[in-house]
Design a protein around this nucleic acid. Structure first.
Lengths: 156, 156
DNA sequence: TATTGTTATACTCTATAACTATA
DNA sequence: TATAGTTATAGAGTATAACAATA
């Protein structure tokens, strides 16, 4: 990024004011992980949203679309295209729900299971690389803190 | 969220598989903060991107647009509309750069400084509320870990 | 040749309103 | 009346390619 010659005097903004804000740091850390995951999932034909949906459907056969949307914090209306994409790839099937004729029950195909397994393996390896730079205690602490942040707004 | 009557048997997906992934948890935590910040900044006429840009320009008078874009991890092309918006609101001015006729030097107006101050106060209060749910040690640990994650991809 | 600001464009994610068929 | 899936639509954020002026 700075090849050979050093930076121009006005090229670098030291963002001390922003850096103290947790949201700013969270976003930057997530963006790093996000772009890495995008490159990892792309060869499998998955995006982060379709990947997350596929994993959840595999773990919860018969899941309704609306329940999936709620679990992933995605609007029902935006879920449609995601499931369409998974269905077009032959990874997910929409069946009639056994007890509610309004609803659809989602399940993964054999091919979907295989893709899901590959994706999970790739992501687990990426995760392992991430965790190399922190201790097990630090990870536990981090996950606990993130959980508190995530749920803090629900108490208001 | 579950008023009175308990959930239907198939309504809730327990996403144990996804929950173990850091990226998933980071995203959810950031989304909580993000939506809170959106509501806080909206009355001031700011979005998160325009807010971040305004703070950085206030802290670094004479900043080039390209340097600002680099500091915020935003493409130069996407920076244009952000500065347009800040300029339309009378908060930021684009001046000729003193030593490079290709570049523009950014600075905040009196009104921009005032808005920036208000926004920082609002965000600092939000931050204080966030930090209430964690210890000082946990915060230090969290920031250090996020920094490691953010910079981990640069070493590849 | 490379960089700065810019335009045009496109794709993803997100959010809302409204429709239908069921409950 | 409320809910499930759907369609349409619009606003953000992000990414790339290309251009004119300048280094």
């Amino acid at each position: 990024m700075s090849p050979g010659i050093s930076r121009q005097s006005d090229a670098l903004a030291v963002d001390e004011t922003l850096r103290q804000f947790l949201g700013y740091r969270l976003k930057r850390a997530y963006n790093t992980i996000r772009s890495e995951l995008l490159s990892l999932l792309d060869p499998l034909g998955l995006r982060i949203t379709t990947y997350s949906a596929l994993v959840l459907i595999a773990d919860n056969p018969g899941l309704r679309q609306s329940a999936l949307a709620e679990a992933l914090d995605i609007k029902r209306s935006n879920m449609v295209a995601i499931i369409d994409e998974l269905e077009t790839n032959g990874w997910v099937i929409r069946k009639d729900h056994p007890s509610d004729r309004r609803a659809l029950a989602l399940s993964v195909t054999k091919s979907g299971k295989s893709t899901c397994k590959k994706a999970l393996a790739v992501c687990a390896e990426h995760e392992a690389n991430l965790l190399k730079c922190m201790s097990s205690d630090a990870l536990t602490e981090l996950l606990g803190t993130l959980e508190k942040i995530e749920s803090s707004s629900e108490t208001k």
